[in-house]
Design a protein around this nucleic acid. Structure first.
Length: 463
RNA sequence: GGCGCUGUAGCAAAGUGGUAAUGCAGUGGACUGCAACUCCGCCAUCGUCGGUUCGAUUCCGACCAGCGCCUCCA
């Protein structure tokens, strides 16, 4: 019963050993709430939710925190663009985020810290860093540049450990012009000044707001501690975000390690291309949920290993939906039972091996088939096991009957209409009027309803 | 230039030094009034070229083709 996780820090799979088995801590970077989240934002949420579920099945007390970044230049820009108060925007989109996450069957984290609720902690951390010589207030003659506090990268000998970067070999300013007030090109902002029209908080360096990297460091320290077990996020966050978090936290906490394990999920592309504003190919979770059940999205995300890149397409979603239909089909009609996780089963073993969800899903299928073939106590036992696996994956959480009969789009026949038509077809069949029976079945099919006859009667499902 | 990733059947996706899970699609058959569901079966030599080895898709090297990050970014 050993959990192995790939650790980005060491770049290899390692045995997971928590600092304190009675209090396992995990942090994942959450969204910046200035828009609806896209499917790429959903991947880490779903993946690390699954990690959370696996951990919960192994340890009695797992504390999972996923933040909300509610102060950021992107939000400020959106606020200006829409002439709306910043709080209106952050509230709207954080609510939308929670709705999306719920649709994806993610569990609510134990802590959902908001950046703006932790300004004092952030200021404290900046002050500590300044006091210890790891940060400095920028010196500039330009009025608008005053009030910046920067982290001094050269003050930290092993900066770059996570991303394995040697700063001297980076192309300084390759994409962004280096600000003149920086002592060193790699230095990054801890605190930046706000104009009167921008949101800001008073600090020893004047009215301003925190830098993005600082937020996570301060919130982790407050809610989870100086050193946590797992820190997770998207692959693109390795540098600079996570590297900078390490720098801040480690230097502020007397050199303590920020996180023992770093987990990073791969990117989601759309039809082979990266999601980007210029391509206009964002797939918002909110939009996808209009067309697909949340479980279909979750299934798609879990059908690939979390570290690999994944290509999203309509075919993939449609195929996933058919697969889930198939799984639900196997367990339809089986009485519901309490889940019972089989810890020595192959599915759980796969999850313990760096969260191998594709293999766990294939086991789900094997169990579903077995359930379908078995009967009596044997079937009940298999069904318990199946539910156990499904619960860790966060799949098959709906009642099968409901899964098949809920409306899938607007112009469908109602359940009552379907039942009536089935009745009519049944009568026609009894009358041996097969032409009529087939005609009714075709009518249902045209309405998106597929019939399944059996000895016990006729079941139906939406296609 | 630095760091790193990927290339497995029509699509998706695991995996292993001893000729490759699983799902979708397709297809042959059983079942069915006909279908659907279900069941039985079929459907790949793992980018290319070398090397190591008794044996490589799996290890090493080269090459080809994609791709990510290098201070907006899940």
């Amino acid at each position: 019963m050993e959990l192995k996780l790939y650790n980005s820090l060491t770049r290899q799979k390692q045995l997971f050993e928590p600092i304190d088995p009675k209090r396992v801590t995990m942090y994942a970077c959450g969204p910046t709430v200035y828009n609806y989240v896209h499917i790429g934002n959903a991947r880490p949420a779903v993946v690390f939710d699954t990690v959370y579920r696996v951990l919960k099945s192994l340890y009695p007390n797992v504390i999972y925190a996923r933040n909300i970044t509610d102060i950021d230049d992107k939000i400020i820009n959106k606020s200006i663009e829409l002439s709306q108060d910043i709080n209106v925007i952050t509230e709207k989109y954080s609510e939308a985020y929670f709705d999306d996450m719920q649709a994806l069957n993610t569990l609510t984290p134990d802590h959902i810290p908001y950046a703006t609720d932790h300004i004092p902690e952030m200021i404290d951390m900046v002050q500590t860093l300044v006091d210890k010589g790891h940060a400095y207030a920028a010196d500039s003659q330009v009025e608008a540049e005053k009030g910046h506090v920067l982290f001094s990268v050269p003050s930290m000998p092993n900066y770059g450990e996570l991303s394995k970067r040697n700063l001297d070999e980076q192309e300084a300013g390759a994409r962004v012009e280096v600000a003149g007030y920086k002592q060193y090109a790699g230095d990054f902002v801890l605190w930046k000044p706000s104009t009167d029209s921008e949101p800001g908080w008073n600090s020893p360096w004047g009215r301003g707001r925190p830098g993005w990297h600082l937020e996570c460091s301060a919130m982790i320290k407050k809610h989870l501690g100086d050193t946590i077990d797992i820190h997770a996020g998207g692959h693109d966050l390795v540098f600079p975000h996570h590297e900078n978090e390490i720098a801040q936290s480690s230097c502020a906490n007397d050199g303590k390690t920020l996180a023992n394990f770093w987990m990073h999920n791969g990117f989601i592309n759309i039809d082979g291309e990266k999601m980007s504003k210029s391509l206009g190919n964002f797939r918002l979770v909110n939009d996808l949920l209009q067309q697909y059940p949340g479980e279909v999205l979750r299934y798609v995300i879990l059908s690939a290993h979390y570290r690999s890149e994944q290509n999203f397409s309509k075919d993939l979603l449609d195929s996933a939906w058919r697969t889930l239909d198939s799984l639900y089909g196997f367990i339809r009609g089986v009485k519901s039972v309490e889940a019972q996780l089989n810890r020595s089963g192959d599915a759980f073993k796969a999850l313990l091996d760096d969260i191998n969800t594709p293999v766990a899903i294939s086991e789900l299928y094997r169990l579903a088939k077995a359930v379908n073939q078995a009967s009596g106590d044997k079937q009940t036992a298999l069904m318990k096991e199946l539910k156990g696996v499904a619960d860790v994956l966060g799949l098959l959480q709906q009642d099968p009957e409901q899964w098949f009969t809920q409306a899938r789009s607007d112009d469908q026949l109602s359940a009552e209409q379907v039942e009536q038509l089935i009745e009519a077809r049944q009568q026609a069949k009894q009358d041996k009027d097969y032409a009529k029976a087939d005609q009714v079945r075709q009518q249902l099919l045209d309405g998106g309803v597929i019939l399944e006859d059996s000895r016990e009667g006729t079941q139906w499902r939406r296609s």
